[in-house]
Nucleic acid binder design. Sequence first.
DNA 1: GCGTGAACCGGACGTCATGTCCACATAGTG
DNA 2: CACTATGTGGACATGACGTCCGGTTCACGC
Lengths: 202, 202
Amino acid sequence: MTGGAVDQPPAFRAGLVPRRERADAARNRMQVLAAADRLFRERDPGTVTMEDVCRAAGVGRATLYRRYPDVQSIALALLDRHERDLQESLLRGEPPLGPGAPPVARLTAFYRAMVDLLERFGHLLRSVESGSARYGTGAYGFWFAHVRALLAEAGVAHPEQLADIALAPLSAELYHRQRTQLGLVPKEVADRLAWLAERLTG
Amino acid sequence: MTGGAVDQPPAFRAGLVPRRERADAARNRMQVLAAADRLFRERDPGTVTMEDVCRAAGVGRATLYRRYPDVQSIALALLDRHERDLQESLLRGEPPLGPGAPPVARLTAFYRAMVDLLERFGHLLRSVESGSARYGTGAYGFWFAHVRALLAEAGVAHPEQLADIALAPLSAELYHRQRTQLGLVPKEVADRLAWLAERLTG
DNA sequence: GCGTGAACCGGACGTCATGTCCACATAGTG
DNA sequence: CACTATGTGGACATGACGTCCGGTTCACGC
């Protein structure tokens, strides 16, 4: 299967459980997320509409809007677990992804992990970023803080301003172009980014 | 005024003149472009709609759709002359922007010129790029070819793949974030890109 | 100047997605 | 087993889209 945070009620994750999620609600939520994941994968993620998700999931409008205000938030829900996993690895995982390795190695490992994320969930990331909401998400803030810290540790001047530059090549839309239009394979993209990591922190 | 290719009929630029542009057509076209430029500047460029441009220009729907299929193409029309000017300077202008200077200097000059373009016409560029059409435009193809050639001249490996990476920090949306959210001034952005240019070509 | 044909214009129209609302259904509780 | 809050489906009003058509206005040739 595709994977996704399909099996965890949002209320649980949020921490405040008013009562308990009803069985029919859970069933519908899983249908919605599964249908949405399929749609994002099949079409251009920017063209998927709430209406489409309703129909594909066999669910009424109110059911959908109850939990998700727009398609981006659906993609975000599907993405959430995987992004958190990577964030956990960055904070407390083994080096070189986690703490303990020199900045160059950690930045390179981060790039490789992000390419992996882009490869597996590029369709979701493109949907989230469409509408120019890339820099508003909490995830971007996390990547930004991580890279800024690595650059600072490497002794580079203006790490705050360079972090944005270091993250720019990880745009989902750019990755999609490199894969489809330029015909690159993931390893090539990752190797180029590894080279960039050396240049930035050297 | 704001500037823009408001005073040149598209048929003239295209080369094939069927007869001559009618006076009322020219008047309406200028009204449309002026109104659109104002709208893109005032609001979030992604939210400007064809309907809005109609109302602001005091013009009917057919008048607008006759020439422009969507808002992106209006922004593109306003942008066209300025992008061509820069392209001309890159091809045949004085060094370091034009030919004759070493790659590092030319890449740095290109970055500075692009920051200037982003500063003056960021509202238009953001509109064009919204809808993830950034890599489809002819302009991106031009910048891509230019940077690839400079990287190749500098003797870097894989210039084709690195050109995308070198261009990624020039995203209009990213520039907007750096100016508004991070509070950077144009010179800071340009200096950081100049540093990047040295690292990439060094 | 002045007829004439083509280019151009305004606005109406059908379609589609959006987000809200309400009457009803149903799962979980006592 | 009845009761209530939660969840559900679909109708509705709104607004943008893109097209079409009847009427207007301009440029050209005389």
